[in-house]
Structure formats: C-alpha cells, structure tokens
C-alpha cells in the first residue's frame, strides 16, 4: 500500500461495478440492468482481468430492487468462471433492504459496507446510522463475508477506526476510497495521497472516482500500490462526449494501463489471498 509496493510489482485487484443504483438506460443505454445483461458484461470483464464484481439489482423497469440480487448472483455464477461476487449493502434504502446483499444463497464472498450517510438531491440524507453499520459488520463477520469499507469522505475513515477499535473487522482492512462531488472527497491527487497516508497498518485500498476522474485517479492508485474499481456505476463516458459502450471497454483500458505500468492484474484467487477471503 505504497509506492514501494508498486515498484515491487504487487498485483492489482480490478473490480468492475457494472450497474450501480443511480443511473439507468435513459442515461446510457449500454448500462446493464437485467440479470442476464449484467452477467454477460461481468463475464466479459472477467476475461479481461477483473477479479471482483460489485453488484446491484434492478426490477423490470430498471428501478433498484435488492430482492433481485439473488437472481443477479445466480446469473453471474452461471455465466462467469471464478470472479469474486461483492454485493451491495449500500444506497439510500432502509436497513431491511441493505441487508439482503448478505443474505443470498450461496452467500457472496464480499459485500460493500458504507461507513456513513451522505446527501442526495436537495432533500435527502441517506439513512445509515452507526447502529446499522455495526449490525451489518457483525453479520458479515459471522458469515465470513469480507466487507469492502466504503469511505465516501475522509470522516468515514474515522468510522473505520471506530470499527477496528470495537474489534468488528478482520485484517487486512479493505478500504474503498471514493472521490467525486457532493459529500464525497474532492477528487484531487493531493486528497488521494492524504487519505492513503491516514489508513491503518494492515490495510489494502481500492480507489473509486466518478466521471472524468475515474481514469486519472485510478491510475494514481496503482502507483500507490492500491487497487482500482471501474465500471458504469461510476462513469458513463469513455471520454468527453463519448458514451461508454460496455463495462468491458472501461476494464480493457484499465487492464492496458496496469500492463503499461508493468504490473499484473490479480486473478480471483490472488485477490482472495490478498484480502484474506477464506
């Protein structure tokens, strides 16, 4: 988790987030919403080197529907070889909806764990209390599900320390550092460096940056010995004025950059080993 780690040639874990819960086909018709579409795109990304997929589920209208995570998981398992499934427990929904991401059968190997609420639109604050976080963390630990610790801003790193102090997490702690507008950490290289310097020992970090910040800041993450997430959840454009054609297009570009930087992409098994997934 440092520039020295990059120089030493550690492998890079590439996560693809194909769908998310914010945008739909009205924003980009190539965004996969239905289970078969999601599975097909994830399989293409796995072939290109993605080792983790971060999954959301939609209903037949393209609206968020955590109850369909089971169907999405089944489709991905059917279509893919060995990619690690990471279900969402995030978004703006209530606890009962969030927890469905860690109650699929079989269980996912990973799940996201938002470290706090954030603002949406003009009148919304997502309901995500410390009590919710503690309950989700406890159920993940009990079930052997590796949490990805979603830090939407630098205060959320404090919340991870709180969980560590409570003994709620197992090493290595896997952070997802999120950069963008609104209540997210402002997307600058300086903020990336600062946040990484504040992470605890025995951590690994992934970097997510939205829109046009995805390409430069994920590249920076590789140079800092971190891992990267790309996909249409975070970015609907390949470049200015050019909508993304598929998640594979974004994954292919990142895989090419990682290769140019003389690193290897982690296989799913290498990602499991690196993150301590049983």
């Amino acid at each position: 988790m440092s520039y020295e780690d990059y120089l030493d040639g550690g492998s890079v874990i590439l996560t693809v987030a194909p769908t998310g819960g914010v945008h739909g086909k009205d924003a980009n018709p190539n965004l996969p919403e239905q289970p078969s579409e999601i599975a097909e795109q994830v399989a293409a990304c796995e072939e290109l080197g993605a080792s983790i997929c971060h999954l959301h589920a939609r209903d037949e209208h393209g609206e968020n529907d955590a109850a369909r995570l089971q169907e999405v998981n089944d489709a991905v398992r059917e279509r893919c070889d060995d990619i690690v499934i990471q279900n969402t427990t995030g978004g703006q929904s209530t606890y009962d909806s969030r927890v469905q991401g860690i109650r699929t059968d079989p269980l996912p190997e990973m799940a996201s764990l938002d470290m706090g609420p954030f603002n949406r639109g003009q009148h919304i604050i997502t309901e995500h209390t410390r009590n919710n976080i503690d309950n989700l963390a406890a159920e993940m630990r009990e079930k052997g599900i590796k949490p990805e610790l979603e830090c939407f801003n630098n205060g959320h790193v404090n919340e991870v320390y709180r969980l560590i102090d409570r003994g709620a997490l197992e090493e290595p702690y896997y952070f997802n550092l999120i950069f963008g507008g609104g209540t997210f950490t402002p997307p600058t290289p300086e903020n990336v460096l600062n946040l990484v310097s504040n992470l605890p020992e025995n951590s690994e970090f992934n970097l997510l940056a939205v829109g046009r910040h995805q390409l430069p800041l994920t590249t920076l993450a590789v140079l800092l010995g971190g891992h990267v997430r790309v996909g249409m959840e975070d970015n609907l454009y390949y470049r200015r004025g050019e909508p993304v054609e598929s998640n594979a297009q974004l994954v292919e570009r990142t895989a090419r950059i990682v290769d140019l930087l003389e690193c290897d992409l982690a296989t799913p098994d290498e990602a499991r080993e690196r993150l301590g997934i049983a």
């Binding site: 924003a27 978004g91 997210f184 609907l236």
Partner: peptide, 18 residues
C-alpha cells in the same frame, strides 16, 4: 433533470450507491 452535474458533454456522475 436534477442531480446530474453536466460538464461539457460529460455527465459527471456525482453519486454512487455502494
């Protein structure tokens, strides 16, 4: 529509849903 910050031709997704 509210919510999406449009920069030039790029829609910069301001929010994700992890």
């Amino acid at each position: 529509a509210a919510g999406d910050e449009v920069v030039g031709d790029d829609v910069v997704t301001p929010e994700v849903t992890d």
